[in-house]
Design a protein around this nucleic acid. Structure first.
Length: 111
DNA sequence: ATTATGACTTCAC
DNA sequence: CGTGAAGCCATAA
């Protein structure tokens, strides 16, 4: 295949799509689930396109600290509004009870 | 092909 | 999880 990484992007969309409502996950978790755990940044790049795709709640994907880093490109008010709409509490650009609502694809989906 | 940048992560203080 | 520095993979110019 000429572009094997493209498959990676598609997987990211599927995983993000499987994120339950009121739950969030991190780029590293998705990257690791896909096998490219070293490319957490690439997951962010995948989300860049995912944000334009329906059914891909990019707002549910945050960094390891539960910080809404993606809101910068997503829309600060927009992302927080969406998260609050999912019963997710966001304060100072950060998710509250992040470890509680954290959704790990490796544990939930099971490898 | 090389350099620079990025929606990240981990290690060290 | 405060701040700071280095590492890693892919895209854009």
């Amino acid at each position: 295949m000429k572009e094997p990484n493209v498959n990676f992007f598609k997987d990211v969309y599927e995983v993000v799509r499987l994120i339950p409502r009121g739950r969030v996950t991190s780029y590293g978790a998705i990257a690791e689930y896909l096998g490219t755990k070293g490319s957490a940044r690439v997951v962010g790049w995948a989300m860049h396109g995912a944000a334009a795709i329906e059914g891909v709640p990019a707002h549910r994907v945050v960094n390891r600290q539960g910080l809404l880093t993606g809101k910068i490109h997503f829309g600060e008010n927009k992302m927080q509004k969406l998260l609050e709409n999912e019963n997710i509490k966001v304060v100072n650009h950060k998710i509250q009870d992040f470890e509680k609502i954290f959704w790990d694809p490796m544990s939930e989906l099971g490898l």
